[in-house]
């Protein structure tokens, strides 16, 4: 039986001027459905590239990314967009909320690009968005604008937005970047709650060791290579020494 998410011989090469940079050097990865996988490693280790390739954001130079047995990089632009919209909920630190939209509209925004959600009426979507926001303790900020929210609240809205189309995978790149310890813990707890309550498969990229407390799978990246099930991930990350 194939894994829920599987990469085979995944390579990614960037050409920077005359220099050839190998961001991924043939990664074979398997993630089961409902997993809470945290990718850790130094900057430039290739973790964001790997997660981007899994999320259909960065086309790999070589290898395949199979989601439920289907190679996503064989899809055309429209199919790939639909895949991202339907299957994956993104939460990237850099992908902020739209300042012109209030919290509610930011949350329902992915539905305007979704064929299935478009068929639902506005009230239905609104109810779903408010329910998600309530679950994330944001019910009192439904009509606020992003500029009126704290960093932690903005993350919660981004999580609600990632969940609105009911995707099977939540992909988060540095979701707790630039947050204080307390808020970081709150966000991590929310992720854990999503994993357990909504049974979503979580893939998180982070530098923060706090994630290790809740992660089910820890994957350490170093120089474009992946190390899974390392004995002491903290040491591996800190020292850069990875043992299988």
């Amino acid at each position: 039986m194939s894994e829920f998410i599987e990469t085979k011989g995944l390579k990614k090469v960037y050409q920077v001027g005359d220099q050839r940079v190998e961001a991924l050097k043939g990664v074979d990865l398997e993630i089961t459905q409902g997993d809470f996988a945290v990718f850790m490693g130094h900057s430039g280790s290739g973790k964001t590239t790997l997660v981007s390739a899994i999320g259909g954001l960065t086309r790999p130079t070589e290898g395949t990314v199979l989601i439920e047995g289907n190679d996503i990089w064989k899809l055309n632009d429209r199919q790939l967009s639909n895949f991202r919209n339907r299957k994956i909920g993104f939460m990237f630190q850099s992908f902020s909320l739209l300042p012109t939209l209030n919290v509610l509209n930011n949350v329902v925004m992915p539905t305007i690009f979704s064929n299935s959600s478009r068929k639902k009426n506005a009230d239905e979507l609104k109810t779903k968005a408010i329910s998600l926001l309530a679950d994330l303790e944001m019910q009192r900020k439904v009509y606020s604008f992003p500029s009126e929210l704290s960093g932690g609240e903005q993350r919660r809205v981004a999580i609600a937005r990632a969940l609105i189309n009911d995707p099977e995978i939540i992909l988060a790149d540095e979701p707790t970047g630039e947050l204080d310890i307390r808020t970081e813990r709150e966000v991590i707890d929310i992720f854990s709650h999503i994993n357990e309550t909504y049974k979503k498969t979580l893939i998180v990229v982070s530098h923060s060791l706090t994630w290790l407390e809740k992660a089910k799978t820890i994957i350490v990246m170093k120089d474009g290579l992946m190390f899974k099930d390392v004995e002491d991930p903290v040491e591996a990350i800190m020292e850069g020494v990875c043992k299988q």
Binding site: G55, L57, D77, R78, S81, N82, R84, N85, R86, F90, F92, S94, F95, S96, L98, M109, P110, F113, S114, R161, N165
Partner: peptide
Amino acid sequence: REIGMLKAIGASRF
């Protein structure tokens, strides 16, 4: 950035 975000959440090129 906004374009990147819209693409990531599923906006097609069209």
